[in-house]
Write a protein that binds this DNA or RNA. Structure first.
Lengths: 154, 154
DNA sequence: AGCAGAAGCTTTAGACTTAAAGCATCTCGA
DNA sequence: TCGAGATGCTTTAAGTCTAAAGCTTCTGCT
């Protein structure tokens, strides 16, 4: 019976899985964006840039930021423009390649990030609190496999 | 030993899980957007609107679209403006409530959607092909639990 | 009846995003 | 050496998105 049903009406389990994945991401993103705005007057893209810069000891080039945040290079230009204007990051040049623009956190940027990040972590932890450690591990592993799958391994 | 490490350096497993979720979603979204553009000269938000309208037998109001796509009402206004201009959807009024704007697929819109959706489904299926049925089911269930968790059940 | 507030949509200002074109610089092979 | 192509970033045009304010219409209460 199953096969007959599957033949006449295509099973859309994959689509439902994708939509559910998208829903979860959107829900979290929306919540984080709203809180980020309310509590820190900060946007999510800007925060993400600060987080990447904080994680990299010596700053990053525009291209590295573009890769890590998975957004276009033109987008990074605009984000860094605004962050630099607020004094949270600073552009610099690299002597060995004058095409490259090097970006680093300013003291003010580092301070701002250090103030926001524990709260941000708390929001995430809260939203994931409904899953126990086992579920979180299982989900993490499955998403790892999904990541491989997306890039086209088969 | 574990506890000592955990005490001095906060465990960021939740953060890593969230980032991995975001990565998977971004990878799929980026791929689908690019193909949608190349093969159908269509954007993802517009396609999502068409998909919602196709699924609803009698069309939807602007507000219902806003809810289902989880985007702001103002955003829907702009999307429908553009889709209407292309002749893929039509605005209508509802006699019982003159505030409400009713939107439905035109024949042209229905045709366009029917042409795109099998291909779209194929892209998704391909990207998920690295997971077997068991994994997909497990992932689907875990995401269901995550969805509940995000909304704040605990 | 009629008014206060709610509900549904649009408008506005500003930020984010992309693709594509453009500019400067670098690399590498002839 | 020198020029073609690659690389790194910025600019541009257009679409997407949000929050907040504004407009119209409806609902419910007095």
């Amino acid at each position: 019976m199953d096969t007959i049903v599957a033949a006449t009406e295509p099973d859309q389990a994959e689509l439902r899985l994708w939509l559910r994945l998208l829903t979860c991401t959107s829900l979290i993103e929306r919540e984080v964006r709203a809180r980020m705005r309310r509590e820190f007057d900060m946007t999510l893209p800007r925060f993400d840039v600060l987080a990447q810069l904080d994680r990299a000891a010596d700053g990053l080039s525009m291209g590295e930021l573009s890769d890590r945040l998975m957004v276009s290079a033109g987008n990074i230009t605009g984000l860094i423009d605004r962050l630099a204007q607020e004094g949270l990051v600073a552009r610099g040049s690299r002597p060995d390649d004058r095409r490259t623009v090097h970006v680093r956190l300013t003291d003010k940027g580092k301070q701002a990030f250090d103030q926001m990040t524990p709260t941000h972590h708390g929001w995430i932890a809260d939203m994931l609190a409904g899953l126990d450690r086992t579920d979180r591990k299982a989900l993490y592993d499955l998403l790892g496999r999904l990541k491989t799958s997306i890039s086209g391994d088969a």
